[in-house]
C-alpha cells in the first residue's frame, strides 16, 4: 500500500508498504529518517517515541496505515531550519545526558512535550513524564539535569548566553 503523511512539516509518502509495517519501520527504512530508534518493538522502552498529531506515541506500536494523513514530529525535526539546536537538545548535550544516546531521541520528544505542558516541572513531574523512556547508561541523573536546565532557560531566556552550543 501507499502511505502519505506529514513528517516534520513536509509531506512524504512511501510505496510498497506491507500492512504489517509499523510507523517506526516506515520512518526508518522507507523515509530515510533513522533518528527514531527501535530497542524493543513492543512499546516498553520509548526509544521510538514520536509525536503523532501532537500526541506522544511509541511509533513501533502504530501501524503505518494508521498514520495516513497525520502530522508526525521526530527527533530530526527538533532543530530549526538553520540547524540550530532546540533548547532541550542543547541542554542534553551540555549536561552529559547523552551517553550511548540510543534513548536520547525518545527522551527529547517526551521532554519537549512535558515542557510545552508544564512551565516549571517539579522533579516528580519530570520523572512521571519520562517514566516510559528507558535509559541504560545515565542512571537518569543527567537527564533530570537537562530537563531542569531547559525549563530554567525557558522561563529566563536571556539569562544564559551559552544557550546554543
Amino acid at each position: 500500500m501507499r502511505v502519505t503523511l506529514t513528517v516534520n512539516g513536509r509531506e512524504r509518502s512511501a510505496d510498497h508498504v506491507w500492512e504489517g509495517e509499523s510507523l517506526l519501520y516506515v520512518l526508518r527504512e522507507r523515509l530515510g529518517l533513522p533518528g527514531s530508534k527501535n530497542a524493543c518493538g513492543q512499546g516498553e522502552c520509548g526509544s521510538c517515541t514520536v509525536r503523532l498529531d501532537g500526541d506522544l506515541v511509541c511509533s513501533c506500536l502504530v501501524a503505518a496505515g494508521q498514520a495516513e494523513g497525520c502530522e508526525v514530529r521526530t527527533v530530526e525535526g527538533l532543530a530549526d531550519a538553520d540547524g540550530r539546536l532546540a533548547p532541550i537538545q542543547a541542554a542534553f548535550v551540555e549536561t552529559g545526558a547523552v551517553r550511548c544516546g540510543f534513548c536520547t531521541p525518545g527522551l527529547l520528544l517526551a521532554a519537549e512535550e512535558l515542557l510545552a505542558r508544564v512551565e516549571r516541572p517539579a522533579d516528580a513531574d519530570i520523572r512521571e513524564a519520562l517514566a516510559g523512556n528507558l535509559c541504560r547508561c545515565t542512571g537518569y541523573e543527567s537527564v533530570l539535569d537537562a530537563v531542569r536546565l531547559a525549563a530554567a532557560r525557558a522561563t529566563a531566556p536571556a539569562a544564559d548566553p551559552e544557550r546554543r552550543p
Binding site: G35, L78, V93, E94, G96, V98, G101
Partner: peptide
C-alpha cells in the same frame, strides 16, 4: 561535551542498526 553529542541529539548519529 561528548564529541558525538550533537549528532546524537539530532538523530544524525549512525548506529549500526
Amino acid at each position: 561535551r561528548r564529541p558525538d553529542g550533537v549528532l546524537k541529539v539530532t538523530g544524525d548519529f549512525a548506529y549500526a542498526s
